[in-house]
Design a protein around this nucleic acid. Structure first.
Ligand SMILES: [Mn+2]
Ligand SMILES: [Mn+2]
Ligand SMILES: [Zn+2]
Ligand SMILES: [Zn+2]
Lengths: 149, 149
DNA sequence: GTGGGTGTTTAGAATGATTCAAAACCTCAA
DNA sequence: TTGAGGTTTTGAATCATTCTAAACACCCAC
């Protein structure tokens, strides 16, 4: 079901891992491939289920480990909504998330630079931002397909 | 330690609860008073500790219940940062949160209307927003006192 | 090729915030 | 006085995540 990584993606993975002195492993490849295959912000458990289709022996702990490693490398982002299970996103462009309450689905919302600039300008002096998280929640009316991928 | 609610605050509480067909109780008064007394975005447990000073028999479950009720009434907001314990905020003005990684403290950042308008304008048609959450995280340099209250 | 050393994976146990269940309690109106 | 309905309390249950320790895999020096 899940495609293997192409050369370009393999390179990205290898390079990102190398930064933190870490290596490519079969498990990491599978987990990364799962994230790229369907960019629907899966939970750890969803990643686990999908990854097991190509690697049945894979353990949940490893999925946690891989994802944590990727986040550390800046390869993927964690997405949290309230107290729900953490979801993962391989979209590296600056973007916000929209959580549809009816379906539970999470959609990427592109963020123009000027918005981030404006937001940073709201901070009192002395506040140094490392990251800004923006998340919407609501519903998506009709408008046929909002499929993430 | 914690002041009682003044008349105005009591009225706000009573009115907000009435909306959901709920009543003022001594426990709810104490919990609400704790939130107003120190607007430092306490966790449930912190609220619990503080509330027990004026009402020793109070239980943790009740604190959870009260806070959930308040959120339902729109009296207070939940504040989540990554997977940390939920914090509570009685500031009803639209605002974002800045989480200082070094101290763990959470600061309110005022949000001008135009920022929210701009953000909403980023959504594709068909997306209906119910709420927008904005949270910064980083560090606060020198700049003496960033005490929330 | 053999034996470590190092980082990775695995299974299962532990943790901890939150939720749930059921009994005790209160308030108010009949 | 009784009883219904909502609230509080205690303790147990849940469940995502983290931790622990043992098994593995890879690499290099001998
Ligand atoms: Mn590239
Ligand atoms: Mn008022
Ligand atoms: Zn995303
Ligand atoms: Zn706040």
């Amino acid at each position: 079901m899940i495609q293997n990584l192409n050369e370009h993606q393999k390179e990205d993975l290898q390079e990102a891992l190398a930064h933190g002195g870490q290596k490519v492993t079969p498990q990491r490849e599978v987990v990364y491939a799962v994230l790229l295959a369907k960019r629907d912000h899966p939970t750890v458990d969803e990643v686990f289920q999908r990854a097991r289709e190509s690697m049945p022996g894979l353990s949940l702990a490893t999925v946690y480990n891989c994802l944590e490693t990727f986040v550390g490398c800046g390869l993927v982002r964690q997405v949290n909504h309230e107290r729900e299970s953490t979801r993962y996103c391989p979209n590296l462009a600056p973007h916000a998330h929209f959580r549809d309450e009816s379906t539970g689905r999470v959609h990427d919302i592109e963020l123009p630079d000027h918005v981030l600039t404006t937001l940073r300008s709201l901070l009192p002096s002395g506040f140094e931002t490392e990251a800004i998280e923006i998340s919407f929640h609501g519903h998506t009316k009709n408008s046929r397909n909002h499929t993430s991928n």
